[in-house]
Simulated scan of single mutants.
Amino acid sequence: MLLAVAGLLAYLTRAESSAPAKPSPAPKSTPRTASHAAIPGKHAAVAAPPKTSDPIAFAKAATKVLWTYDTRSFSQAEHVAGLKRWMTSEKKYADWTSVSDQVPTPVLWSRMHDNDQHATAKVGEGHFPQAFKTALAQDPGAITEASVYAVTVTGKQSIAWKGSGSGAESRSTTLAVQCRPDKACGLVGVLPSVAP
């Protein structure tokens, strides 16, 4: 029963990697010198995070941005920079690698750009996984140190590309979200498997 919470705690408190994460270079085939977010009338590569203390509402919004991208208008580096704004400011808990692993590599992004590939997401429902709820009911104080919640979100991602190509698939993910009582939620990471 406590396995899910123990797994989440182990995930959150694991030893940090000694190798620093390498910044991703921008694709070479599509150089861009100005940030589109700074140009009047242009939308940002990634929507800004909502100011909420509700872990489910935040997780649903975070899932939407994780499943949404536009290689036609933004570089991979711009997309990654936008996602970084969603992360918790508490470095002890932030797992940037699990989030950045959701983004295509610069080389793949460049190829997707050549095909005008872009994706939108429709988020359905979000909930605390049953094992997480059960563990919290048994030990309500266990969450007070980190204030990190596991939230499973379901929805659909639609992808389109040059030549009227398109496709859609149902998706699910479980995110770790930090919601302190005195500040807005932040993304901790994407769990390696979906918790029902």
Rank of each mutant, 00 (worst) to 15 (best):
K133P: 01
S110V: 10
S110P: 13
S166K: 15
K133L: 09
S164V: 12
P129T: 07
A142Q: 15
V151H: 04
S166L: 01
D114M: 11
V153K: 06
G126S: 08
H113G: 02
W109G: 10
D139A: 11
Y149H: 11
A137I: 00
T144I: 04
Q117D: 04
S166I: 00
E145L: 12
G126R: 10
D116S: 15
E125W: 03
Q130L: 15
A150F: 05
A137L: 11
V151F: 14
K156H: 06
S110C: 02
H127W: 11
S166P: 08
W161G: 00
F128Y: 12
F132L: 05
S158C: 08
A137G: 13
A142W: 07
A135Y: 02
D116W: 15
V153Q: 09
T120V: 14
K122S: 12
K162A: 07
K122Q: 08
H113M: 13
Q138N: 08
T154V: 14
W161M: 01
D114V: 02
D116H: 09
T152R: 08
I159S: 03
A142P: 05
Y149D: 06
W109K: 07
Q157I: 02
V153M: 11
G167I: 03
A150T: 08
F128N: 05
D114T: 12
M112V: 00
V153H: 07
H127F: 14
H118S: 13
V123Y: 04
Q130G: 01
V153Y: 09
S147N: 13
P129A: 07
Q117H: 04
G155P: 10
K133N: 14
K133W: 02
W161D: 00
W161H: 05
A146S: 13
W109N: 04
K133Q: 15
A131G: 15
F132T: 07
A131H: 09
G126K: 12
W161T: 06
G167N: 10
D114R: 02
A137T: 10
E125G: 13
K156C: 03
A137V: 06
N115G: 04
V123W: 06
E125L: 13
R111K: 15
Q117C: 13
S147Y: 08
Y149P: 00
K156L: 13
K162R: 11
T120P: 00
D139N: 12
H127D: 02
S158F: 03
D139T: 13
A135S: 14
Q157E: 05
E125Q: 14
H118P: 02
L136H: 03
H127I: 06
T134Y: 01
A119S: 15
P140T: 10
Q117I: 13
D139M: 13
K133V: 10
A146I: 08
K133M: 02
V151L: 08
A135D: 07
S158D: 12
